[in-house]
């Protein structure tokens, strides 16, 4: 209490943020009650009849439910394995670039895809990989290899999906790591040099351990997103023949839930997603702390 009194002005600064989260994050959570209701928009949330667990039962009975969950997990897991380390490697590499102008230019070029909409990027991917007109297949033909219809082949589609995600996000992701790297005490590098460490040695013995807390925190956050997936990328890259691997929870909700106005069912799916995500974050945090590192809390 004393502490509160003494620093009231500092706590006052917290108020806008607290209000923001209460209004935009906590109050809307009340809407989760829709998941248990037979929701009728004209009767409103409270007057709609209770549906018990019907919405959840219906969710499990959707023939596609297993498939969309599997796809979401698969694409996210691949994303975690490939897309998560990519910006770290890239940041380490950029950090070693000595020519300033080269560093600036390559950074800007790497950020660029982040600012483009997935719809545009999707168009580019389709154009580049087109069997008849695309550059990639042109090269393959020159090399005497038979052309590949990348976007219509399920395996290739998954690979393209993952790599295009790296292309879109890796450059932007380096920002946080580069910031963490600049915060490293130069004395550590000098000490390492005196001990005779080369550049590679320094990366592994100084840079990486120093940014480890940042990596762990971002990793925990990434794990927390395992069950949810953005809608733009799958929507922009999907096509009817790869539906078996490209249909994910978000696109399914959009195509079947939102377009049909099935608010109850959609809320149920969203709620299950959030609960699983929360469990994953807590678990990841637990292990991170157990492993001796710092967790989120």
């Amino acid at each position: 209490m004393k502490e509160w009194k003494r620093n009231y002005d500092l706590y006052l600064l917290l108020v806008p943020a607290a209000v923001f989260f209460i209004v935009f994050a906590y109050i809307p959570m009340g809407g989760l009650v829709i998941a248990f209701k037979d929701y009728n928009i004209f009767q409103g949330v409270w007057d709609s009849g209770w549906a018990g667990l019907d919405n959840f039962r219906e969710m499990l009975s959707i023939p596609e439910f297993f498939r969309i969950t599997r796809n979401t997990l698969m694409l996210n897991l691949l994303g975690l394995l490939v897309c998560f380390p990519a910006p770290i490697v890239l940041a380490l590499m950029l950090n070693e670039v000595r020519a300033r102008s080269l560093k600036r230019i390559s950074q800007s070029l790497l950020y660029l895809p982040h600012f483009m909409s997935w719809i545009v990027l999707g168009g580019i991917v389709y154009a580049v990989l087109s069997p008849k007109y695309g550059v990639v297949n042109q090269l393959l033909r020159w090399a005497g290899v038979e052309e590949i219809y990348f976007m219509a082949d399920q395996t290739w589609w998954v690979i393209v999906y993952t790599l295009s995600a790296v292309w879109q996000s890796a450059g932007w992701g380096t920002i946080i790591y580069l910031a963490a790297i600049t915060a490293i005490d130069p004395a550590l590098y000098e000490a390492a040099s005196i001990d005779g460490a080369g550049r590679i040695r320094k990366i592994f013995s100084v840079t990486l351990p120093s940014i480890m807390p940042t990596i762990v925190i971002l990793f925990i956050l990434a794990v927390g997103q395992m069950v949810s997936i953005g809608i733009e990328q799958p929507l922009a890259l999907a096509n009817p023949v790869v539906g078996d691997v490209s249909e994910v929870i978000s696109t399914y909700i959009y195509q079947v839930g939102i377009k049909q106005g099935e608010f109850g069912l959609t809320t149920a799916v969203g709620m299950v997603q959030s609960v699983i995500n929360l469990c994953l974050v807590v678990t990841a945090n637990h292990f991170a702390r157990k492993a001796g590192g710092e967790g989120l809390w």
Partner: peptide
């Protein structure tokens, strides 16, 4: 078209 299945924006 050999590629009609991926012509998802009719381009």
């Amino acid at each position: 078209s050999k590629e009609f299945v991926t012509d998802v924006n009719s381009q």
